[in-house]
Design a binder for these strands. Sequence first.
DNA 1: CTGAAAGCGCTTACAG
DNA 2: CTGAAAGCGCTTACAG
Lengths: 341, 341
Amino acid sequence: MHTAGGRPRPPTIHDVAREAGVSRGTVSRVLNGGRNVSTAARDAVEAAILRTGYVVNRHARSLITGRSDSVGFLLTEPQERFFEDPNFNVLLRGCTEALAAHDVPLLLMIAGTEAERRRITRYITAGHVDGVLLVSSHSGDPVAVRLREAGVPLVACGKPIGQGTKVSYVAAADRDGAREMVQYLLSLGRRRVGTVTGPLDTPGGVERLAGYREVLAEAGLGADDRLIANGDYSRASGEAAAERLLAEAPDLDAVFVASDLMAQGVLAALQRAGRRVPEDVAVGGFDDSPAALATQPPMTTIRQPWGRISAEMVRVLLAQIGGEDPAAVILPTELVHRASA
Amino acid sequence: MHTAGGRPRPPTIHDVAREAGVSRGTVSRVLNGGRNVSTAARDAVEAAILRTGYVVNRHARSLITGRSDSVGFLLTEPQERFFEDPNFNVLLRGCTEALAAHDVPLLLMIAGTEAERRRITRYITAGHVDGVLLVSSHSGDPVAVRLREAGVPLVACGKPIGQGTKVSYVAAADRDGAREMVQYLLSLGRRRVGTVTGPLDTPGGVERLAGYREVLAEAGLGADDRLIANGDYSRASGEAAAERLLAEAPDLDAVFVASDLMAQGVLAALQRAGRRVPEDVAVGGFDDSPAALATQPPMTTIRQPWGRISAEMVRVLLAQIGGEDPAAVILPTELVHRASA
DNA sequence: CTGAAAGCGCTTACAG
DNA sequence: CTGAAAGCGCTTACAG
């Protein structure tokens, strides 16, 4: 029997039961872990499944279990930034694969506009997804708040600002990573070390700046606001920030940049200003994204363990869907030494 | 009433019917287009929907309609390349948004290994998805073949090689775009114009090379294989290809590169060899991906209309799911003039 | 360990 | 135009 489109109607649990000579209940039991099933019955059912090519109908299952057996991957930042950001790819790929290993499909959702935010919130709270992997570190994200209030299992990438301890998250040790880079820059003999920060309403922006400040203070180098310029993680903002730094602190001899993409922009500004990297100004990035390999010279940077981050996000989310309490996971970073510093 | 997780059990069509004082059948009718429903009934139902916050249970609907009302976005190339490729982001975002406008969720699927290919093929042919947006232009892709044989609605990004006319696709006018770039390079007075091709088992690779050859022949410039080097769309392959070009044809004065990412690599090799761009060697890319803006100098390139490509892919796929025949859509490209040529 | 039965929330002919 | 009813393919107490 075929539908209009020519796709054959797949076998159901009923076909398998007939083929195996058991009841549909028994088939369902072997499908769901095989508790309370005799070996003979299980074998017969498994053989029948192979013979018929049976695949469970997820809609029927979901209808009765109330679970969708799928999760959402939700972007709530202004999309441009994310899609420009090479980290996004790594994270998305990692999550897709980790989920696939559990046979859980990933639904991609982009909440760029207010209308989309409303639509997606309704979609999620209606239970069309069992939980969500949230990529939005901006504080006061209304979607995150609404989802949390609705009791939707949630795990954020990066510590959500101002959400208390109620929401799970997985993050790299931002402050430690920043500390390591700035210490390294100092170990090179640099003394006028500037920084280009991320957005200060994101945990990465705040923590990396804090790490920078701590190390300078510990080294006895006084705070100097002329050495600090804000960026928004985009390449263009890094370029603009570097120009400001150059104008306000021309004696700059190193810069710690809070993302590789911004560091690309910093490199461009430095080259335009005739400063050699690393001879005149050493540049350290953050992320170890693909962008770090595309620069001239290749970028010395702090590696974020994206593979582990995505795997942990999935693990924590699945656990929470299974009834466990929220959890926070912090993963160590690593200095990757290349040529820019 | 709440489930264990604390999520409220959403209202059903039954609640809406009671609230509106009609039968469940009538509610369903207004939900599904409102044919054969009186204005009074429709108004009552719509008011009841608002009041109850009703959202359709897609699983129940799918169980009966046999449709999943979702589509897959399937990557079957070796993943590394795709995830390195900035075009991927643009395409994925465009498709997600175009689908969202139709309220159709996108499932992201990555078929990197043979095991994943098998699992995903089963998943799709089991009907868990109504159709798939296929990103794989390599010839002989086994997943594409199996899906087509199973009658799954499919639309590819780029013309699938060797699949006949049975499968829908949306593509940019690769050959015309290549022609325009090479003509432009010639108009600059360049006479030793090389090219770095894409993989020659992809339509983009083949067509862009063909455009290059045509224009040179039309200009009366004889074919010279030393001016042609193959790449695989990756940055590193562009760098290696440029080195070969420089070794075999040191008098090179322009290069048409079949992707911006490869062109990044070409720029690096050229700079290392001490050639100025564009003074000594003019470089033209292809894609107008974000990579084209990140280079020094910014890249002159051929813009692929990604927004339209993704919108058309979605349109054609949805039409096909609705019963229409396959279709091919070719979209024009555009020369974007920047500083590298 | 196993079968019969109820029911998940919807859609869709079928009568009227 | 509308209601009553069947049924989509599953899971899960409930008996036995």
